[in-house]
């Protein structure tokens, strides 16, 4: 009889193992839940739509005369500011992951998730996966405003592909940084600190002006800021043709940024896992 009990226990263990959900199905279901939250929590969704719209209109409107500066790379301000606004929108989307995570931690949902037999990597990865989906929205909004406002797109569809690639990179980096900080602080209020980090990186780059036209201390910082190269990658098709020399530094910056912040987020995640 004792053998039977042991055997039964083994069989039950096998069954549990057999029924453990696959990592992709966890990612998929958590992504679906995030989509639902997107609809159910307008306070979190509205900034994602409004901010790229506002950034594009405000930057292009307020600084439209910058194209008159000798040496400015384009005579169409929307072509310069549009991609900057799209990347800012993508950064906002990435930050949304940290707000959502903070909400789940404070509400106790995350604890319940950690008690489930789901793989830890899927739980953490679902946030980033959803961000990649969501990033399409600010990019589409900027392209739409650009099309209405008369944005030049010399590289055509390739310009949009490069913009999306850059936006995915920024969103993933912002999300991983935000998740790391939120795992550490365990509160929604971590969002404030996360925002500061992202926006400092954005503004210390070639967002509004090319490095050659900057003066003072900023060009020295912008030259070494990885965000400058991601911006170049995303913007190149709107001010000229897509070229490998403008693409690879951006790809390397994204790869390094994602790797660095993924390690940071994972280490912070391990602090909250029981």
């Amino acid at each position: 009889m004792t053998v039977d009990v042991a055997q039964r226990a083994d069989t039950a263990g096998d069954r549990v193992d057999h029924h453990r959900p696959r990592p992709w199905s966890i990612v998929w279901r958590l992504t679906a839940r995030s989509w639902l939250n997107l609809v159910r929590i307008p306070a979190a969704t509205i900034p994602m739509v409004i901010m790229p719209l506002f950034f594009t209109v405000a930057f292009a409107g307020a600084f439209s005369a910058l194209v008159l500066i000798p040496g400015y790379p384009t005579d169409n301000i929307l072509s310069w500011m549009g991609p900057f606004a799209a990347l800012q929108g993508a950064a906002f989307t990435g930050l949304g992951a940290s707000f959502a995570l903070g909400r789940d931690i404070e509400g106790g949902f995350y604890d319940r998730l950690l008690l489930s037999p789901a793989s830890r990597l899927s739980i953490a990865g679902a946030n980033v996966f959803f961000v990649l989906f969501r990033t399409v929205i600010p990019v589409a909004i900027v392209l739409l405003i650009g099309a209405i406002g008369g944005m030049d797109i010399p590289a055509g569809i390739l310009a949009a592909v490069m913009l999306l690639l850059g936006a995915w990179g920024v969103a993933a980096i912002a999300a991983l940084w935000g998740m790391g900080v939120t795992y550490r602080i365990q509160k929604q209020s971590a969002g404030g600190l996360v925002q500061v980090g992202v926006f400092i990186a954005m503004f210390l780059s070639i967002g509004m002006m090319p490095v050659d036209l900057m003066q003072g201390w900023l060009p020295h910082v912008a030259k070494y800021n990885p965000m400058t190269y991601i911006m170049e990658l995303a913007r190149q098709g709107f001010i000229g043709e897509v070229a490998w020399e403008s693409t690879w530094p951006g790809l390397v910056s994204i790869a390094c940024g994602v790797t660095f912040f993924a390690i940071f987020a994972w280490r912070m995640f391990q602090r909250v896992t029981p």
Partner: peptide, 19 residues
Amino acid sequence: LLLAAVNSSSLSRASLIPG
């Protein structure tokens, strides 16, 4: 102050624009 530091360095050449 941070925005002023960044913008004054980034947009300093704007002062050369006629108008």
